[in-house]
Design a protein around this nucleic acid. Structure first.
Lengths: 207, 207
DNA sequence: ACCTGAACACCGTTCAAGT
DNA sequence: ACCTGAACACCGTTCAAGT
């Protein structure tokens, strides 16, 4: 949320039509719904009953439909928030750790994001227009975050320069996505190996 | 369906408990349900109402639940049938075309299978026990089919020998899986390129 | 043994009434 | 302008009655 020139709230970045003015109670309800939906999606999956989300937020079902006419709108909004949080974590980690370790920790954080969103993969391929802008938002937020961490690690001499950051990101994404079962632990190990390779690896085979 | 020693029908390969004896009308209904489900899944997706499938088969909803207590049982049964059909296509193609072309055509047939099953990918990762044996069945049926086509094509001098057939299969699978939109045409072109590479490619970079 | 379909429970969605 | 929740439609699932 940002504020308009006259001090009232706008809905920039929430997926709601730009320029609309939102009443204070509505604003608070939208926040409550996002928090509730995140918890319910984590507990019961993205197909959880709308009533469960409304109850978790302490609101009527009608309020859910007012702000998020389609279930996919709510899913997309929660996803945007989680993407933004993950991007913000890059700054936090960069401030707290040395460049090489900040990069390593953020990549593991990224594994969490993708692993949690595995159920979303099918939705993204569904053609629902609500998801149209999501990959773009994903790129827009996460790629710059990674590139900054990456450049810092290279400058610090902790990471070799002959690796493409975008390729690294999609490789980590694939690892986090693939196996349904005990995939998270496996993905973590694989990503750790990759990071070691970034530090100690020899020259890559020419593509 | 196969027959037991006394000439009655058994349910081997249908996913129904082994050794059970099935009345003639029940046997016919199971077939009708599989045919109907395949059509309805293709038309309305795997989440189509059970009533729609029952109606398409000209049967009551209770009959669907009698033979397939869970929706996933029906999906799994249809999938097994489609896998078996695709495996059988390998024999047909091998008989009709020269080895190199048989391989190329079968790989395109495989693209159809995977593309049609894209909606199933999420289901496979759902942990539903009904799908547990499906990947195994997939391997058991499709890998031998491919290996035979592949070996014949290599023996015929149409395909170089320094390619791993399983790797080829999973690469084609990934291509057929990835893009939600006009992915089928794109996958076809990519697979065609792969096949050309099998024929005319230079030495692969050492892994 | 098997089939049918009415009956029940549950969920998505709307909208009149209230604030 | 927004919120509530009863009401309606629709779908999954069961089970008593029929064959």
């Amino acid at each position: 949320m940002t504020r308009t020139a006259d001090g009232r709230k706008s809905t920039a970045g929430t997926g709601i039509a730009k320029g609309r003015v939102v009443r204070t109670d509505a604003e608070r309800n939208i926040g409550a719904l996002l928090t509730a939906a995140k918890a319910v999606f984590a507990r019961s999956g993205v197909d959880a009953p709308v009533r469960e989300i409304a109850e978790e937020a302490g609101l009527g079902v009608g309020t859910v439909y007012r702000h998020f006419p389609q279930r996919s709108d709510l899913i997309a909004a929660v996803s945007r928030q989680e993407i933004a949080t993950c991007a913000y974590a890059a700054e936090t980690l960069a401030a707290k750790y040395k460049p090489g370790e900040a990069l390593a920790r953020w990549l593991q954080r990224y594994v969490d994001l993708i692993a949690a969103k595995r159920g979303l993969a099918a939705a993204l391929h569904s053609g629902d227009p609500a998801y149209n802008q999501l990959p773009a938002y994903f790129d827009e937020r996460l790629r710059p975050a990674l590139h900054e961490l990456f450049a810092a690690a290279v400058a610090d001499g902790n990471v070799r320069a002959d690796v493409d950051a975008d390729e690294l990101l999609s490789a980590v994404g694939s690892l986090a996505m693939s196996p349904g079962d005990k995939g998270l632990a496996r993905a973590r190990r694989m990503v750790a190996l990759l990071v070691d390779g970034l530090r100690f690896g020899a020259t890559l085979p020419a593509s």
